[in-house]
Design a binder for these strands. Sequence first.
DNA 1: TACTTAATAGACACTGTGTCTCTATCTCTT
DNA 2: AAGAGATAGAGACACAGTGTCTATTAAGTA
Lengths: 199, 199
Amino acid sequence: MTTKVDPRVKRTKRMFEHALLDLMDEKEYKKITVLEIAKRSTLNRATFYLHYFDKDDLLEQILDEALYDLQESVKVKEVEYKYDSDNPHPIFIRLFEKMTERYKFYHTMLVRENNPYFTEYVRKILKNFVEDGTAYMDRDNVQYNVPHDISIAYITSAYLGVIIWWLKNDLPYPPKYMAVQLTRMSTVGPFVDNPYLHS
Amino acid sequence: MTTKVDPRVKRTKRMFEHALLDLMDEKEYKKITVLEIAKRSTLNRATFYLHYFDKDDLLEQILDEALYDLQESVKVKEVEYKYDSDNPHPIFIRLFEKMTERYKFYHTMLVRENNPYFTEYVRKILKNFVEDGTAYMDRDNVQYNVPHDISIAYITSAYLGVIIWWLKNDLPYPPKYMAVQLTRMSTVGPFVDNPYLHS
DNA sequence: TACTTAATAGACACTGTGTCTCTATCTCTT
DNA sequence: AAGAGATAGAGACACAGTGTCTATTAAGTA
């Protein structure tokens, strides 16, 4: 059941979405008014309220679309994959590629605006990925040094933080390279020969 | 040179600060108005503008005070300290203790409001701490697997993220325990016997 | 006590919000 | 191609919140 949407509605919503994203490149989200969005979209302010409760509602709809798109492009497909610290999972690489493609958007939401709704969802995606990785470990009866909830929060936050750092610094390394470094950090750690293991 | 401040001014500012923190326990920051702050403080709205440009200015002054306090309590004093993965640095423990003492405040700013100004400053404090730790390493001519900027961002984000997770989950572990776990994670990693090192 | 500074009370113009009504225009179906 | 139904535009409205200003009262200073 695909409910048919009036083409005028589609067009109108698209125009409001573009207008807001456009304005967000120029100024802080909180300083943007509904009147400005209407002007930029060449539509009427009253029309805005036919589609959205308020400015936040419009932004949320934009974010939901983007998150759906990200979620989809990161869905686990049946891939041949051998776990190895220097061979990151292909979906992890895809995540960095997606962010490179839509760099401006991700930079705005995760870095400049630091949008909590968007950021938390990206964190959730990363958490699932990290949990899948450790589940893989558990099959081998690995012993942990640190409570599981802490190590999950640790690795997830590290991934998210480095991604934000990477966006903030204008993508200083390519996608695959980033995926390798993060996979390394969370498996063998930062050292070639860990000095803490010689005790 | 300590410029004398009129006791009425001190009192007034204290009252506005308390009023805002009080209101922030009850509702979202962005939904709080200057009139509400004035009413809650039992002061006049015009008086508010004698001391602050706007609501954000008041919040920033509150945050600056708290950050100064945190910075001070985490200043490196000459302490006898032996580096060891299970013996966290005393200032690191003090950080968790400080947050336990002022739990409500840190929870509001770092978790509920997710205030970027405050969060970034706490990140900066953690980054300094992490950099001091790795400088310690460099003296021993340790070889790195991963670019230095990435591993700094990785560990700093992990620390910050776990602290926020810990606050969000109502302090499930005591300060010293947390300091040990994070130190362990960033040195020997989460595993008792790292499976990735047997290749 | 006299002088100085701070707080109060109320009024003001201004901006932005969300709603409503009337009219014009577009679209979907038959 | 026509007509019913839905969407968009234009303008007006009450309302809430902001930031400023002035005249008056109260409190601190020396």
